[in-house]
């Protein structure tokens, strides 16, 4: 019942934010906090930043985490600031998804410098997925510099979104099952890099470089004697 009530109030408040500057209660029973949230959302929108991440945070806070109202306001304000910082770090032309991903990353202790590094190696391509994977790694306690370098190298080596996502989720799985975070990141990186960076079977086929690749010994002599 409590969740249904919260959901109803929240839907009403989001609709109101969408159509006007009405400060209808965003949070049940707390008009002041709701008004503050409306201001934050409007200011964020006016600044050309995405508001979906903030609305998602409020939804999560109200419907899932049952966070106290003052805390929700503080989180929303911090989120808005992070979005602005992310936009600057991901310049010059970040998409709304990029900015949202950057804001998330900053919220999980990824540095602005790492965002810049990922942007630099990605060129004008979207960075939401690479930043998501980077955030996942850092949240898994992988050293941030190592995580940033791995993700950047994978991008350089041609890893696509599916491969990056698989990498991030595999590292997560390894860490949750007890592997040390940095080791898991290295091990999975070796596996993916072997596929990406090494000319692999192609090179082996080309130059016949199968000398010790399967443990197959080169045989003793059988060539013609001079």
């Amino acid at each position: 019942m409590r969740r249904l009530l919260s959901a109803g109030l929240f839907v009403a408040c989001v609709a109101s934010v969408g159509r006007a500057q009405d400060t209808t209660a965003l949070i049940a029973g707390d008009a002041a906090a709701s008004a503050e949230l409306s201001k934050i959302i409007e200011a964020t929108r006016a600044n050309g930043l995405p508001i979906d991440p903030i609305l998602a945070k409020i939804r999560q806070a109200v419907l899932f985490a049952h966070t106290p109202a003052p805390r929700i306001v503080a989180v929303a304000r911090a989120m808005s600031a992070r979005l602005e910082e992310a936009r600057a770090a991901l310049a010059p032309n970040p998409t709304q998804l990029d900015i949202a991903a950057g804001g998330d990353a900053l919220g999980y202790k990824v540095s602005a410098q790492s965002l810049k590094d990922i942007r630099r190696v990605s060129g004008n391509r979207p960075v939401a997925v690479p930043l998501g994977v980077l955030t996942q790694l850092v949240t898994n306690q992988v050293d941030e510099k190592k995580a940033t370098k791995i993700v950047a190298d994978l991008i350089r080596n041609g890893a696509n979104s599916d491969m990056l996502v698989a990498y991030g989720n595999q590292v997560s799985s390894d860490v949750q099952s007890g592997t040390k975070p940095n080791n898991a990141a290295d091990l999975r990186n070796m596996g993916l890099s072997a596929v990406l960076g090494v000319p692999g079977a192609a090179a082996a086929a080309n130059v016949g470089d199968a000398l010790t690749s399967a443990g197959a010994p080169t045989p003793p002599p059988g060539k013609k004697k001079p």
Partner: peptide, 16 residues
């Protein structure tokens, strides 16, 4: 998945 309470409270997993 890595789980986090982030800045809201309530444990969630993070997936890309």
């Amino acid at each position: 998945l890595p789980s986090t309470t982030d800045d809201l409270g309530g444990v969630v997993g993070l997936i890309t």
